[in-house]
Design a protein around this nucleic acid. Structure first.
Lengths: 226, 226
DNA sequence: GCAAGAATGTCCAATATTTTACAATTTTAT
DNA sequence: ATAAAATTGTAAAATATTGGACATTCTTGC
């Protein structure tokens, strides 16, 4: 677990050799999305894998009242939609572009063809999926074990890593509060605590972690298990 | 998400053809564990994949004080240890046998050999891993969105599915409370509510879901998203 | 079969979190 | 540039959850 804190989630694309990466790129269709545009609807059944080529996307669920509950954000090189292929499930989340974003959409047949031909793909996919699972387990652990401020720090840090690098996180505090499973006021209090010790900066609709290294060290120290 | 409620997690072993299953069986060593015996220690680095052949195991973390925090239970055909292989991580959980249990321990080299030869293995592994990820996301969602009683029902039901079929869940209420992220008293209250409507029965060190179908229906009705 | 240990069930005070309400700030639209 | 809308910040009362204490039930070892 400590090792996980050391690095961002390696992206699916990064784990591939140049040749395979090119094949994957050619196998799909590049689609552009404007800021805020819907990419996939929860419930869609058309199977296929999507890869973020530029920009970033927000994964979550729209409530009946239009409110958006964010689960995570994904950055360049990250994939989504795998389980429409392998687990034969409808899409369970709504996905929207956070900024102008390019997505490589690969159809199920095209992906399967490549998958069978290039064993590296399955390894890369398993690696990213398993690491994601692992991060999820850690987030759950944080949600039950840690006090608010520590929980907030850990989840923020983990989300940043999954998203893949950038130190700025575009979201409303009310969304993040929901992601953490607390009220906006509790989050506000927790953030104030983290701002006081200089780990976090907040702005209108965004949260920044100005010093990733210090954040990592703090999380490792205050949020480790047992 | 609704579809997921319909079936247990298909086990890794079940997803394989007879031939591949035999190969896997022969590739490993069958090891027997007595009830309560430790199978893997958190922090172990020796990579390899383990498959439950008979019995069942408990996955969790031992605290410094000896307390055990359960994350999940795994039944026959389920695997663990995958990410020692694919994500190159140390084991992050302690694993103990709940009952007398047989485990097929497959070393990293042996598993890799098979993995490269039989593409079915990677598909089966991705399927179970992705479904597990998915269940985790749902559990997290339940933990933040639902009131105690509903949350308890949903997580109990999900855990049962992951474990793979049996209607009896061997664990102390204090452990389950921790899994749910609440105190034992809150869990006790929630369980009382579920017992009153006949969805749950409790005993000394065990929890039963006597009517899986009714439970499924109740969870689908009261715990669905948006 | 009995006693010791372990787990469950329930009460009440202490604590943490949420709810409600409103002010301050930032963005967006006109 | 200004008004309207959206987001953030803060404080109070209301609510839910926890922690401790103890009786009760069940299991295990002798």
């Amino acid at each position: 677990m400590l090792d996980l804190l050391a690095a961002n989630t390696p992206s699916f694309i990064d784990s591939l050799s140049d040749g395979v990466r090119d094949q994957i790129t050619r196998a799909g269709t590049l689609v552009r999305y404007a800021e805020g545009q819907l990419i996939h609807n929860r419930g869609d059944v058309k199977p296929g894998v999507s890869i973020v080529v530029s920009g970033s996307v927000q994964v979550g669920i729209y409530g009946a009242d239009g409110s958006f509950v964010m689960t995570t954000q994904l950055g360049v090189g990250q994939t989504f939609g795998e389980f429409t292929l392998f687990a034969d499930l409808p899409r369970t989340h709504d996905i929207t572009a956070i900024s102008p974003t390019e997505i490589n959409q690969i159809s199920a047949p095209a992906f399967n063809r490549l998958y069978d031909a290039e064993p590296d793909i399955s390894r890369a996919l398993l690696t990213t999926t398993l690491i994601r699972t692992h991060r999820l387990l850690e987030m759950m652990d944080a949600m039950r074990r840690l006090p608010m401020r520590e929980r907030t720090a850990k989840v923020l840090f983990t989300l940043m890593q999954i998203a893949g690098g950038s130190d700025t996180f575009e979201c409303r505090q009310s969304d993040l509060a929901f992601t953490l499973g607390v009220s906006r006021m509790s989050l506000s209090t927790a953030l104030r605590g983290l701002i006081e010790i200089g780990l976090v900066e907040t702005g209108y609709g965004q949260i920044r972690l100005p010093d990733a290294d210090r954040m990592r060290a703090w999380v490792a120290k205050h949020c480790s298990a047992s």
